[in-house]
């Protein structure tokens, strides 16, 4: 039960909204964080918390692309394939990943580590091509960078190549400052 595990967090979420149903997406995130995807039990429990019917939860969850209703790989690689990234090589990025991991969009590696998806614009067109892996953005991708990211994730579970707070282009550094 989510309520046992995340009671305080759930209460905090509920407190933000005058109408309960607004907490639906935030609670679905809690559920997804817990299991990597949103289980049927979680949907039923959330329906109960918000006084909704399970179909009401279901109609909402299926509208949004970020919720998984089935387990996905530990690392969900989402390469942007919209025009702006495509202009500077996002299809090639998908190609690299395909050849390195042996999976195409919609597939998961046999070890369950990586799932690859081609997704629509992620608001990083200035630093294209790019991809998102779980919560993190990786931008201005090159083949070498992709290699390092995948290796980092495999070995350490994290990669330092992920983006920090966004700014591009970077200001020209004035002499004497870092």
């Amino acid at each position: 039960m989510l309520k046992d595990k995340y009671g305080k967090e759930i209460e905090d979420i509920l407190a933000r909204y005058p109408v309960k149903r607004s907490a639906l997406i935030p609670l679905l995130y809690v559920a997804q964080r817990d299991q990597g995807y949103v289980t049927e039990e979680a949907m039923t429990e959330i329906a109960g918390i918000l006084k909704l019917t399970p179909p009401q939860v279901y109609e909402t969850i299926t509208f949004y692309t970020m919720f998984n209703l089935k387990p996905v790989g530990t690392f969900h690689i989402q390469v942007c394939k919209s025009l702006m990234c495509a202009l500077v090589g996002s299809d090639t990025v998908i190609g690299w990943i395909k050849s390195k991991l042996g999976i195409g969009p919609g597939e998961t590696t046999a070890d369950g580590l990586f799932t690859l998806s081609a997704v629509e614009c992620l608001a990083a067109c200035g630093t294209a091509p790019m991809m998102q892996i779980n919560d993190d953005y990786y931008e201005r991708l090159t083949e070498e960078k992709v290699d390092r990211i995948l290796a980092d994730l495999k070995t350490a579970g994290v990669s330092q190549l992920k983006s920090g707070p966004y700014m591009w282009p970077l200001p020209v550094t004035v002499k004497g400052e870092t």
């Binding site: 049927e40 949907m43 019917t53 279901y58 109609e59 299926t62 509208f63």
Partner: peptide, 20 residues
């Protein structure tokens, strides 16, 4: 006031279902 029908998915793939 039953709310048993869920339009699921979006776009052309919107389909009326119940729960899962």
């Amino acid at each position: 006031d039953v709310k048993a029908l869920a339009p699921t998915g979006r776009g052309t793939m919107t389909e009326i279902k119940h729960f899962g």
